[in-house]
């Protein structure tokens, strides 16, 4: 015969059990981890999508290198207005340029290129690319697209990684003095300083013909 006290205890256990079964359910830890990971922002995937979009639009959003360089020499302020891109409050202007040129020298640090149709030189550094210039020049990603500025910076970093691993190394493998190259890239020009050639090109696309 069950006494009253045992009966109450059993009832309490049943009630608690029912409440627990309604309020929570158990999920295998691997599934939970996978779900949590899925919710995290994936900068690498996001950057790849932006990069693919960038490649599609590259030709239409970049300006002819020889025209931009000539304009910069002639009237820097006008060139900035006409071809430049400014993000926020800055002392620098970005130019996304495309063109052809001939490799005139190669040393430990850089590859020097004589730009076609204009008597000026630009160079591609053998060092890694850092910062937000490339992503900002694309106009495809804005800081306000993200709740956390941290995520914008992570995307920018991943885009730089694409350049550092997929654009520059294959180019460096093929460079040879005298070869003609096709390029698209970014110039970062200080507003308050005179232009000093050769200018560094932050590469976005490099093809050796």
């Amino acid at each position: 015969m069950i006494n009253r006290k045992t009966l109450i205890t059993i009832l309490i256990v049943i009630v608690i059990g029912l409440l627990l079964s309604k309020s929570c359910h158990f999920v295998p830890i691997e599934q939970a981890k996978a779900e949590a990971k899925g919710k995290e922002f994936n900068a690498k995937d996001y950057a790849r999508k932006v990069w693919n979009e960038f490649m599609k639009k590259l030709d239409s959003i970049s300006s002819d290198a020889s025209i931009v360089l000539e304009a910069l020499i002639e009237n820097k302020e006008e060139a900035e207005k006409k071809y430049g891109k400014v993000v926020g409050f800055t002392y620098n202007t970005l130019f996304l340029i495309k063109g052809k040129g001939k490799i005139v020298s190669i040393d430990d640090e850089k590859v020097l290129i004589q730009v076609e149709k204009v008597d000026r030189e630009i160079y591609v550094s053998k060092d890694l690319i850092f910062g937000n210039d490339i992503v900002n020049s694309s106009g495809l990603v804005k800081m306000s697209d993200f709740d956390r500025i941290y995520d914008f910076n992570a995307v920018s970093n991943e885009i730089n990684n694409i350049v550092n691993t997929e654009v520059v190394p294959p180019f460096m493998d093929k460079v040879k003095i005298g070869r003609v190259i096709e390029f698209v890239g970014v110039l970062n020009i200080p507003k308050d300083e005179e232009i000093k050639f050769p200018l560094q090109l932050l590469p976005v696309k490099l093809n050796v013909e």
């Binding site: 926020g88 800055t90 620098n92 804005k142 306000s144």
Partner: peptide, 10 residues
């Protein structure tokens, strides 16, 4: 107004 305005640093 732009929602985010990065200000240059040097």
């Amino acid at each position: 107004f732009p929602e985010i305005v990065p200000v240059a640093v040097e």
